[in-house]
Design a protein around this nucleic acid. Sequence first.
DNA 1: CCCCGAAACCTCCAAGTGGAGATTTTCGTC
DNA 2: GACGAAAATCTCCACTTGGAGGTTTCGGGG
Lengths: 220, 220
Amino acid sequence: MSSDGSVTGDDEAVRTAGRGRRGPYAKSESRREEILDRAIEVFAERGVDGTSMRAIGEAVGVSHAALKHYFPSREALLVEVLRRREARLVEDVTARAGDDFTSLRLLADATVRNAAEPGFVALHTAMLATGVLDPDGEAGEHLVARYREARGRIADDLATGVMAGRPITEVADVAALLLAASDGLQAQWLLEGGTNGDVDLVRSYGLLIDLIGTRRGAQG
Amino acid sequence: MSSDGSVTGDDEAVRTAGRGRRGPYAKSESRREEILDRAIEVFAERGVDGTSMRAIGEAVGVSHAALKHYFPSREALLVEVLRRREARLVEDVTARAGDDFTSLRLLADATVRNAAEPGFVALHTAMLATGVLDPDGEAGEHLVARYREARGRIADDLATGVMAGRPITEVADVAALLLAASDGLQAQWLLEGGTNGDVDLVRSYGLLIDLIGTRRGAQG
DNA sequence: CCCCGAAACCTCCAAGTGGAGATTTTCGTC
DNA sequence: GACGAAAATCTCCACTTGGAGGTTTCGGGG
């Protein structure tokens, strides 16, 4: 039982005095995963306006109210979809990096892989729209934390690598730029219909990386 | 009367045979503007989910159905809000540019000025989330056109200026990057609460412009 | 196997939504 | 001023939405 009252698969079984439940149902975790799986499908198909708790519940095969047991609100559910996606993306690109284990490489890879799934790009963008107006809300808090963490990690890596010796403000700016460009290019690329459009995602992002790496004073 | 059936202030009065209306009411244009004005206020306050035709109608002081006379749908209304904003922003930064009349300067200025109004950033971002999933929809079509136009203009300017002689693919990539970074940085900046957060919008965007301007082979 | 109680899920409800068709307002013409 | 008709606006309606409280399911313990 997590602190927000919703059930997660990671929590230790609750110990109750005497008779009674010692933990979640056996099917809890798989149900929760299924909800998240169906939610992104519904989102990708119907967009943010069409993704009600009822629409998701229908896709899962339960009532909308059943979802509330796992997630306190639609927003919380969608944020969790995003969080899970982010975790998987990191895992995935890290595993693929092999010995080319720099932030720049990981970022470029993550950008391309994420863009391949418009649903996630759209979800991230929709949450961003919400978070921009309400950084203290569920979506906002998640994104604030997420971007801070990412900027921090990227900056650390740049500072010990390609941008060693540069002022920390410059390193911070580059980290912010890398994330910003990733988001913005993915959106433009998808608007252009993907591979055959006017935006070449890989080449454009690669150019930014090149600009950073060839800046005067940057480590070769 | 425009082609989509909604009333715009730009159309020439309709000429009808014999008796009957020769044009819109005297108050049509001001009403339409008022709807757009109230819509962005409602959006900024309540976010995309809270901005129904009813909420906007209430803010204007008319029924939700009255809005339908001017705009066929909520999406069309919000796209028009965005369009109007874009036009004003271009007008504004152009007027302020004086003799420093390059895309880079205009872009930097527009980025900062736009970010000062979170409602518009959020609206643009929300429309982007919709457009990414449905580039053929109302929001998507507008954004596709808008970005293409912007990339084209920026590329033209770069090609005759700071990036003269560079390959056209590189110029196109830079144009896409400049727009992407502008969007992404504004969002991060707002998530961070604006001026006192971890992201320095002006400095970060300035760094990108600097990177482009100091690239090997770029015109000093 | 039975009991118990919390986990999981449901139905009903009130509130909100956009659309259809009815009604009111405006204004050009005579 | 009267008339007519389109512009502008309204009310009513069916449908959708999330929440509250009721019901069913599951599994630990005896």
